Computed example of a mutant assay.
Amino acid sequence: MNKARILPSRLATRHAALGISLAVTFVGTAVVQAADVPIENNRFGCVMEPFETVNLATSADGVLLEVTVDRGDRITEGQLLARLDSSVEEAEVQLARVSAASNAAVESSRARLAFQKARLKRNEDLAGQNMISLEELEEIETEVELAEHDLRQAQVNKELDRLELDRAINDLERRSILAPFDGVVMEKLLNVGEFSDGNTKVLRVARMDPLRVEAKLPAALYGVLAVGVHAEVYPSEAVGGTYTAQVSDIDTVLDSRDGTFRVRLVLGNQDYALPAGVRCQVRFLP
């Protein structure tokens, strides 16, 4: 009969420091675990971070004409944040808009077709009375077919003008940077007058509602938590207070180097009262 062995002292010390009562019994090479982990009675270290951060750049080359925000400014989704000099692109949009709005070619072709059809009808009556030759009638029928072709081509050109306007507008929009979400400006990376090659980062912005709370827990607790569990978050003394968060993600890959796994929580921050980049402690509720 194999005897049970006690956890190595260093591992036992680490778990004891966390306030975790854990017993592991080894039977041969198999592991039989009997754990009593009062997770709700323990606090774990965490960090409050922005839900996401994005480096913003234009997708076109040019000189930066304006930046409408600065570091620390709050932004709303769709807000214009910066744009390149766009005088050429704006002129192209105006020209394309005039062309797309004009219906003269289509109306002219339609009127010509109506005239040729009316002419054909008159001459068909004359041909029935043998007053014009068959060759003359065939010429008029050909004129009708050509007028129909011209109308179809005018309609195609009209659609091409519309597509050209869409392309010109798209080129103009590519020279502006709009806020991808509600948040704050973390950093302004390019100033007015500087050149952007299309890959140059202009602004760095962060989504602050909700905040993301990242915590590392001992591997012994893996399987104890579940997505949706609520927790209390205690920011460092510089911020203070107690806030309720909810588990949104649990890593399925543990870190073998320190015997931990990561847990992510979301913490509502609608009024932006809580800053990001703050250390905290988290206690999971039963």
Rank of each mutant, 00 (worst) to 15 (best):
T76P: 00
N130I: 03
E89L: 10
K121F: 07
L120T: 04
G128A: 15
D150H: 08
P180Y: 05
A111E: 14
D73A: 15
E164D: 14
E90W: 05
D150I: 05
A168G: 07
D73F: 07
D166C: 03
L151P: 00
Q116Y: 10
D150Q: 14
A111M: 09
R152M: 11
F181K: 04
A91P: 02
L81N: 01
R71C: 06
D125P: 00
G72N: 07
E92Y: 07
S87C: 04
R122A: 12
A101I: 05
E159N: 10
N103P: 02
R97C: 06
R110E: 14
L134Y: 07
R83F: 09
S109P: 02
M131E: 10
L95P: 00
L120G: 01
A91N: 12
R112A: 15
L146D: 09
D171K: 11
G183I: 02
R110I: 01
K158N: 10
E145S: 13
E89M: 08
R71Y: 01
R167Y: 12
R167G: 04
V98T: 09
E164P: 00
R167A: 14
L163S: 11
R152C: 04
S109M: 05
V69I: 14
I132Q: 03
K117Q: 15
E92C: 04
E77I: 12
K117V: 13
A168D: 05
N123Y: 10
E148Q: 14
A147N: 06
S176A: 14
L80F: 04
A105P: 01
H149S: 13
N103T: 15
L160W: 11
E141Y: 05
Q94A: 15
L160Q: 14
Q94P: 00
K121S: 13
V106E: 12
V88Q: 14
E173G: 04
L172P: 01
E89K: 06
S108L: 13
K121G: 02
E145D: 12
A111K: 12
L81G: 01
A154V: 06
L178V: 08
E159G: 03
A100M: 07
D150V: 06
V156M: 12
A147V: 06
D171W: 02
L84K: 01
L160K: 13
L80C: 05
S99G: 08
L151K: 11
E164Y: 05
K121W: 05
Q155V: 11
E148I: 03
V88C: 02
G128N: 12
A96F: 03
L80E: 08
A154C: 07
R174W: 04
N130K: 15
I177Q: 01
A127V: 06
K117L: 11
T76H: 10
V106R: 07
S133W: 06
R152I: 11
F115P: 00
A147M: 07
L113M: 15
E148G: 13
D85A: 09
D70M: 07
I169G: 00
G78R: 05
V98P: 00
L126T: 07
D150L: 09
Q116F: 10
Q116S: 11
A96P: 04
N170D: 12
E164C: 03
A104G: 03
V144T: 09
V93P: 00
L178F: 13
E141D: 11
Q153T: 14
S109V: 03
